[in-house]
Each structure stands twice: as structure tokens, then as C-alpha cells.
């Protein structure tokens, strides 16, 4: 058996896979954040809670209605997205003319509200969600064991990230969206319903978080606090990448996940903080972020 710098390959590749999976969640979540920020100019602090809601909706669909993983993968994001649309229509839309900080404060309050409510109802201990039958088991690749479900998570997030990129950069709808990000007033003047576009964008960004939540449900236990711990890291990822480009958000997300995985192998003490340290370094060298434009 060969070794790399004294590290057995199972450990190395195992952690790299874990890093890749974390990276998949970072990418999907920061993509949603970047989309919402682009058009609404608010940072959606509720994103973590909405990711958690995605997992919970999948759990509840399974246990109350007997609806399995595959339908949930579509139903849960739609339901979470609808809740997001209601929030945008009733609350967020009143804040667009004010300082952007109010949007942050409102979504922070909403995150507390939602997480507190779920904690009150389901406690803090995790609830189990089974891996769908098709994806049970794994492949022995010789140098490591690859569980099927984890491979699926990486593939699924790559697919959804690519689809989002394609939608925004290569379709007519996306071109409207990009135009509205640059100059909403002008786009409105061309007869496009910008307020509705804003609502739908928020719904879509939130649905992405819900999708990530369903993907996460079988890996991490379904837990009211699963989002709040993740969202702080995702914020750091967003600062590192800069919110200028879609592709940038995806690359930064996966890249930082891998870096985190590597840190777990070589210097486990720093694995929790490595992303924040990278953020500090990036801020010194390139304050606008790796892919960002100064705003």
C-alpha cells in the first residue's frame, strides 16, 4: 500500500470526498446568496434556515405522507421557495428603498424565528432520514471506498449549479435578469415586470437552499440547527469569492470545501477555522474577493 506524506490514501481521499461534499453545499448555498444579492441587494440571512427547512420538508413528507426521496427532491425546494416568495411579498419588498442593512436585520430575525420554532417542535437531537434504496451501498475504487449516495450529492449539486449558470448566462430570461441587476429602472422602462422578477429570483435562490437541504438530509441528521452553523461558513465563502460571478461562486464553493478536507488530514486543529483564515488573507490581498468587482 502506498502512502502520501505518511498519510494512508484511504484517509486522504476519504477526507477529500467529505471536503467535496461540503464544497457542494457551499457552492449551492453561495450561488443562491449571490443570485439574491445581485437583484435584491440584500444578504439573505434566512438562507441557513431555509436549507434546514428543505431537509425538514423532506422528512415530514416522508413521515406524514409517505412521499419518498425522489419526489421530495422536487417538491421540497418548490415548497420552501413558495414560503420564500410569501416572505418576499409580505416583508422584504417593503425594505428595498431603505438601507441594505435592514434587509440583513430582517432576515436575521426571520432566521431566529424559524429556527426557534423548529427547535420548539422537534428538539435539537437529529432526526434520521434514510438513504434512497437505489443509492445504498458504494463502490470500491481500489484506493478508497466511495458511498453511492455521496457521489450522487456531488453530481447533483454540480448539475444544479451548471443548470443555474446556463439559465442565467445563456438564456433570454437570464439576460433579463442580468440586465435588471445592472439597471432595474431601465429594464422596467422596457416593459419587463421587475418586481415580479425580483420575487421569483428570491424564490429561486431560496429553492436552491431547500434543494441543498434535501440533499443533506440523508448525510447529516435532520436538525433545526443544521443551517445556522453552515451559513456563517457560507458567508465567508461568499466574501472570498466575491459575489460578482456565478461561476466564481461555484468554483470558490467547491475549492474551499477541498481545502477544508485537506486541512482535516494534515492539520485537524485548524479545519474549523481554515476558511476564515483564507478569508482574512484574501481581504488583505484582494479586498473585492477572488471573482468580485469592487462595489
Amino acid at each position: 500500500m502506498f502512502e502520501l506524506l505518511g498519510i494512508p490514501p484511504q484517509v486522504l481521499f476519504g477526507q477529500l470526498l467529505l471536503g467535496l461534499i461540503n464544497g457542494a453545499f457551499y457552492a449551492t448555498l453561495s450561488l443562491g446568496l449571490a443570485l439574491i444579492f445581485g437583484l435584491l441587494n440584500i444578504i439573505n440571512f434566512t438562507h441557513g434556515a431555509q436549507y434546514m427547512m428543505g431537509a425538514f420538508v423532506a422528512y415530514l413528507l416522508l413521515n406524514l405522507l409517505g412521499i419518498g426521496y425522489w419526489p421530495s427532491l422536487f417538491l421540497a425546494p418548490i415548497l420552501v421557495g413558495l414560503v420564500g416568495i410569501v416572505l418576499e411579498k409580505t416583508m422584504l419588498s417593503r425594505l428595498y428603498k431603505l438601507d441594505h442593512l435592514y434587509g440583513l436585520l430582517l432576515t436575521f430575525g426571520l432566521a431566529l424565528l424559524i429556527e426557534g420554532a423548529f427547535r420548539q417542535m422537534y428538539g435539537v437531537s437529529g432526526l434520521p432520514y434514510p438513504i434512497p434504496d437505489v443509492l445504498k451501498g458504494g463502490q470500491n475504487l481500489g484506493f478508497m471506498f466511495l458511498p453511492n449516495y455521496r457521489a450522487w450529492v456531488v453530481v447533483a449539486s454540480l448539475l444544479i449549479c451548471f443548470a443555474t449558470w446556463f439559465l442565467i448566462e445563456r438564456t433570454k430570461l437570464g439576460s433579463y435578469l442580468r440586465a435588471a441587476t445592472e439597471n432595474p429602472a431601465l429594464v422596467q422602462a422596457f416593459g419587463i415586470n421587475v418586481p415580479r422578477m425580483i420575487t421569483l429570483t428570491y424564490g429561486f435562490g431560496v429553492a436552491l437552499a431547500g434543494f441543498a437541504g434535501v440533499l443533506a438530509a440523508p448525510i447529516y441528521s435532520v436538525n433545526p440547527l443544521m443551517g445556522s452553523n453552515l451559513i456563517v461558513v457560507v458567508f465567508a465563502v461568499v466574501v472570498i469569492g466575491g459575489m460578482g460571478s456565478i461561476l466564481g461562486a461555484i468554483l470558490t464553493g467547491f475549492g474551499l470545501g477541498l481545502v477544508e478536507g485537506l486541512t482535516k488530514v494534515f492539520y485537524p486543529e485548524a479545519s474549523n477555522t481554515v476558511i476564515f483564515i483564507i478569508m482574512a488573507i484574501v481581504l488583505v490581498l484582494k479586498p473585492a474577493g477572488l471573482f468580485g468587482r469592487a462595489r
Binding site: 430575525g109 432566521a111 424565528l113 420548539q120
Partner: peptide
């Protein structure tokens, strides 16, 4: 937590 969120 719920009340604090509500106050926000």
C-alpha cells in the same frame, strides 16, 4: 429565540 426573532 422565537420572541427575539419576532422583535427583530
Amino acid at each position: 429565540t422565537i420572541i427575539q426573532g419576532g422583535i427583530f
